[in-house]
């Protein structure tokens, strides 16, 4: 199980971060990702292999002051 923005997601252990992002419908162009508290560079999404218990934060811009 992998936690993505506070929600548990099954089926992504052993897959790449790119596969998870694509599978869940995130657009890589607009986002930044933290894996277990560390930022993952955009060009590494395809190389990072996820493991059970990983915790991801996926963020993007919204309107704000």
């Amino acid at each position: 199980m992998i936690k993505v923005n506070g929600e548990n997601r099954d089926g992504f252990a052993g897959k790449t971060l790119s596969e998870l992002l694509c599978g869940l419908g995130y657009k890589e162009l607009y986002i930044a990702v933290e894996l277990n508290g560390d930022i993952v560079k955009k060009d590494s999404y395809g190389a990072v292999i996820l493991k059970d218990g990983d915790c991801l934060e996926v963020v993007s811009f919204v309107g704000g002051g």
Binding site: G25, K27, Y30, I31, A32, S60, F61
Partner: peptide, 29 residues
């Protein structure tokens, strides 16, 4: 123009970056 950073939404939702004219400096808070 200022922006905020929040947890991203999944799926085919509009992103604010598509609505800001090119050449405008983005100032995240």
């Amino acid at each position: 123009i200022t922006l905020a950073l929040r947890r991203a939404a999944t799926g085919n939702v509009a992103n604010i970056l598509d609505y800001i004219p090119k050449g405008v400096t983005l100032l995240p808070n």
